[in-house]
Design a protein around this nucleic acid. Structure first.
Lengths: 136, 136
DNA sequence: TTTACTGCAAACGCTTTGCACCCAC
DNA sequence: GTGGGTGCAAAGCGTTTGCAGTAAA
């Protein structure tokens, strides 16, 4: 679970910005972050960390398979720890809570798409939205 | 099928820009357009039509339920005639062809999402992507 | 010492908006 | 005549990039 070490092993340098962002992610549980949120957290620990650096660090962490990102239909990208338990996500338009869908659901959706359209490697980098039970 | 008339009935004015865009859409079959593509077509018929006007006209046509739009994960929005036969769409990352998924598939996906997450009114305004059969 | 990484600022692509003029009604 | 619609230009938003300076190795 030492992300900085993963970076090192893969030939990336350990810098303060990267350590800060890794620490935030390591302690995040399985929270979903916008880049802004992550930047805000990072700045609390080092006020010089730039938004561009956050973007670049996230790109690196995605490259070494620590995190993944998805896109919302409206609004910014969402970053979170890569997990073997989930693929697809859904966000409540009202309370903004993000729910991870079960991997089995993701698989069923991919199968449906494949059978209907004959496409392969269907992209899952977007976030469904709707209204959750509590908001109805 | 007279979109300009629909506009009138709903209290919107008929302007040249609106007529031009309606004509393009009426003759489009069930093509999927980016705003750029639609603007390029519109300019062929009246070189003064502005991109902003295209956006505003599309908003109006969506309001009166003639068209719908979806978002790509990367790139611009896609506009098309509203249809009772399809909901979800998938685009080939390679050849850019857009395929309409069967409404039954859309429904099954919505049901899966609903059962897994307990969300309702699941958004379908995005476009899946993948690689189509011909491109593999 | 070397060059990967950084902060900063500017540019990106798509979309929306403010405004004064114009024309459909 | 009135105000809804327009073209134009500028700004918006999230993201990416160019660059010269900095610091990890």
């Amino acid at each position: 679970m030492d992300f900085a070490n993963h970076l090192k092993k893969r030939g990336y340098r350990i810098t303060n910005a990267r350590e800060v962002i890794c620490t935030i992610l390591e302690n995040s549980g399985h929270q979903h972050f916008t880049v802004e949120e992550l930047h805000t957290e990072a700045v609390k620990r080092d006020k010089n960390i730039d938004l561009a650096t956050v973007y670049r660090t996230l790109e690196v962490l995605e490259d070494i398979d620590i995190i993944e990102h998805s896109h919302q239909v409206h609004g910014s990208g969402i970053f979170y720890l890569k997990s073997e338990y989930s693929n697809f996500h859904i966000i409540c338009e009202i309370c903004k809570k993000i729910v991870d869908l079960k991997k089995s659901t993701s698989k069923k959706i991919n199968d449906l798409l494949k059978n209907d359209s004959d496409f392969k490697d269907v992209n899952n980098h977007f976030i469904y939205s709707g209204q959750c039970k509590n908001c109805n």
